[in-house]
Write a protein that binds this DNA or RNA. Structure first.
Lengths: 220, 220
DNA sequence: GCAATATATGAGCGATCGCTCAGCAAAAAT
DNA sequence: ATTTTTGCTGAGCGATCGCTCATATATTGC
């Protein structure tokens, strides 16, 4: 259990057969993480579920951490993809339109694989190379900042960096919390209200939509 | 390593001597968590640092999880204390004053023991009884909701529950992120600007301070 | 076909872990 | 003073873990 494993894999998958093996290992890791949690996700078990021997596992992943990192990498890519696609789509739209779409996208992203997302967020110790899962935010922040910059005239804030940080952090936290611990606020009829509230939170902060009539078309 | 330990301690500290022991164990656990991380925080090591035998440890804590839970409990209490005190202090103040104070309090709370806070947030697997560290939020939410309710006339939102959830989650996420991953935004000169931005985010959302002059007295 | 290379196997090592238990020591009750 | 209760000790058990390595099997290049 002492951690003095390699830092790099001994081999890199080159033939098709081995690429299949690598995929199976990553997929098995994800499945076990979801089903049994991080602590019970032993490398022996992962190899067994992937249908390969433990030795094979260590051909391509130098440590358990590397395996989990691959899962995080894959998951993060999927999330970021949703976000980037959404940002591209609304790049030319005014903030009133764009922010609403981005909030929707953030929720969609968290729904890609919520169970895995939860495990990664709650159980995987962030250590070494996976210091923070919030790599998604790191990806999203500069992109969103660029959007704000392009729409500078619609936006009334002193510090764009700070504003981008605040908004990205806020949206991530709210969608995360909603998906993970408050599924009720995302139930069918209520989901729109939630999107609307978060959108308003952002719009008003940016100095738009001030004094808009409120309390209409929102229930409870 | 199989997890079939007791669920309750065999003994409960009754004499002063043993209460000292219990304190030492909790304190040692916190110190080791900070210094070595969760994985290396073994019960044997904890007992050694606390200066008691491993057997004694298991007199008062049925499992490693119970020990960590005690640390979380203690830490959570301290945080909640800061929040509750602040809320009491501003209970009668208008939201323009109160929210700013609450933001400050949230930052202060996260500064109580940031290193421990970080370890608890990032490394401790949330499993079993410690499903979510965000118990702080669970404590804060009803209190803050009550404050909003008492100031209903100053607030223009349709759904108080939803608004309270959004604001509490947002403030927690922003102060957490700032303290943990962006200490730069809390540097001396900039801290006030950060407080101000977060306060404005909340105030504007609640329908106050619309159309206020911005871009003054804030730098960069 | 045959060597060379790439891939896969799995028994098992060394380390560590969480935890138990039989016995001893101090404190409280009698 | 003696018994009873409470607190403390630590060697070591059983389990599991991450991981290595000697060996075997596919695949590729010639």
């Amino acid at each position: 259990m002492v951690q003095r494993p390699q830092k790099t894999p001994r081999k890199i998958a080159s033939q098709k057969r081995s690429r299949v093996t690598v995929d199976a290992l990553v997929e098995a890791t994800a499945r076990i993480l979801v089903k049994d949690g991080y602590d019970r996700a032993s490398t022996n078990r992962i190899a067994a579920v992937a249908g390969v021997s433990i030795g094979t596992l260590y051909q391509y992943f130098p440590s358990k951490e590397a395996l989990v990192e691959a899962v995080i990498e894959r998951h993060t890519q999927e999330l970021s993809q949703v976000g980037q696609t959404a940002l591209l789509k609304v790049a030319a739209s005014p903030i009133e339109i764009a922010l609403r779409e981005l909030v929707r996208a953030a929720i969609d992203a968290h729904r890609v694989d919520p169970k895995l997302h939860r495990v990664l967020a709650e159980q995987v110790p962030r250590t070494g190379r996976l210091e923070d899962i919030e790599a998604v935010e790191r990806n999203a922040l500069p992109l969103f900042r660029a959007y704000l910059e392009a729409h500078r005239s619609e936006v009334d804030v002193a510090d764009l960096d700070l504003a981008a940080f605040i908004l990205v952090t806020t949206v991530e936290a709210l969608t995360h919390s909603a998906v993970i611990t408050r599924p009720d606020v995302l139930a069918d009829e209520k989901a729109d209200a939630f999107v609307e509230e978060v959108t308003q939170l952002m719009l008003r902060y940016l100095g738009r939509d001030r004094g808009a009539k409120r309390g209409t078309a929102r229930s409870k």
